[in-house]
């Protein structure tokens, strides 16, 4: 079970990012728990300035854009 957080202040790209990750995880049958984190204070604590950003098990893996499919697959499987 991967704990995934999508950081971002609720913009369209952040919602999209969360949707894509959920879709790919479902497709591969991987269990995840995904939270959309919009609190600026929390986002700051991860030292993120460009959203959307993705945190997996408390590790920042991506920021600044909607991640590509291949990237998401590597996080989920890897």
């Amino acid at each position: 079970m991967l704990n995934i957080k999508v950081l971002g202040s609720g913009c369209a790209k952040c919602t999209k990012t969360a949707e894509i990750i959920t879709a790919i995880a479902n497709e591969k049958g991987i269990g995840i728990s995904l939270v959309k984190e919009t609190n600026p204070e929390v986002i700051m604590d991860y030292k993120v300035m460009s959203t959307p950003a993705v945190v997996i098990d408390e590790k920042l893996v991506h920021w600044g854009s909607i991640p590509h499919r291949a990237m998401i697959e590597s996080w989920l499987v890897g």
Binding site: L7, S9, P40, E41, M44, M49, T51
Partner: peptide, 16 residues
Amino acid sequence: PFCSCSSIPVFLGFTS
């Protein structure tokens, strides 16, 4: 380039 939806994280990033 930066999207206006990132203003707050940018503000905090600069500030911190």
